[in-house]
């Protein structure tokens, strides 16, 4: 009698949606195994290969002139592309979230375009736009501006590919917050700039940081689009991902993996920061905003 009562009580504590321990552990095990093979093993391999010839070789590879140039170029491209995308992303999401206008749905689709187009294609578009056979290329060249196989081309391609990250993160967040706070600020006498700096921006700052983080990671790691427009001139127009590929093709695995490990490290740092942001400010970052 007492035993049945006890069992009934235990039964009631289990929620109807939970499964038996066997099912739970099998599912968790599959997920963990999958993650180990697909994610952890390659990550381990990158760092292992990078240090296979010792720490000295690792730093020597990083200290090489071309490697240094690649790192500098990558940082420079990101330093230009990310701030520009922050400005574009802010402007686009502000317009979309706070105002009603015709063609809004079309604009949202347009912002998503870089996600659905292969990066190689977007690189090729710039080749067609600014190449020797195009109208713009020779025109700009006559003024001494090189776009293709130079920094401007790489920056343009990177901006195109990373364009959606900031905007996609901010649009749902700003739509969710509505225009009430802005109206309150205006009714209290604040002008447009004051409203933006003191009310709108603080309301979205964590979401914005999250978007910037993802945008930056992608900007530094972009391969396809940049490969097409850069011309891969060693020491001049090779970014880190391109340099890795070139070193690897030259059977210089240790140097390739040394550079690759830096990119992997960037990914890890991004991941940690992203998780920290989600954990700390989850409700101030748009739900489902991750890509």
């Amino acid at each position: 009698m007492a035993a049945t009562k006890l069992r009934a009580r235990v039964h009631r504590r289990v929620s109807p949606t939970s499964e038996s321990p066997l099912v739970q552990w099998t599912l968790i095990g599959i997920a963990l195994l999958f993650m180990a093979v697909i994610l952890l093993l390659p990550l381990y391999a990158v760092f292992h290969e990078a240090f296979v010839k010792g720490v000295g070789a690792f730093f020597a590879a990083l200290g090489e002139r071309d490697a240094q140039a690649a790192i500098r170029l990558t940082l420079l491209v990101a330093a230009i592309a990310v701030p520009l995308n922050v400005v574009f992303g802010l402007a686009a999401s502000w317009a979309i979230a706070k105002f009603e206008f015709k063609g809004k749905a079309f604009l949202i689709t347009l912002i998503d375009l870089p996600f659905s187009v292969s990066p190689v294609i977007s690189g090729l578009v710039y080749v067609l736009l600014f190449g020797a056979g195009s109208f713009l290329g020779p025109f700009l060249k006559s003024y001494g501006i090189e776009v293709l196989f130079a920094l401007p081309g790489i920056v343009l391609a990177t901006i195109f590919v990373t364009f959606p990250f900031v905007a996609r993160e901010l649009i749902p967040l700003m739509q969710d917050q509505g225009t009430g706070d802005e109206e309150a600020a205006l009714s209290l006498g604040a002008n447009g700039w004051q409203t933006f700096w003191r009310v709108t921006l603080p309301n979205i700052k964590w979401g914005l940081l999250y978007g910037v983080l993802l945008c930056n990671a992608r900007a530094m790691g972009e391969f396809g689009a940049v490969a097409v427009v850069s011309g891969k001139i060693r020491g001049q127009t090779t970014t880190m991902p391109l340099q890795v590929e070139m070193l690897y093709n030259e059977y210089n695995a240790a140097a390739a993996f040394a550079l690759a490990s830096l990119l992997a490290l960037l990914a890890l740092v991004t991941l940690v920061l992203k998780t920290a942001l989600e954990w700390r400010f989850g409700d101030e970052i748009a739900a489902g905003g991750g890509h």
């Binding site: 009430g180 109206e183 600020a185 009714s187 003191r198 603080p202 309301n203």
Partner: peptide, 12 residues
């Protein structure tokens, strides 16, 4: 002076 139904206080 405008008072909104959902307060619209500046949360930060």
């Amino acid at each position: 002076g405008f008072v909104f139904q959902h307060y619209a206080l500046f949360r930060h």
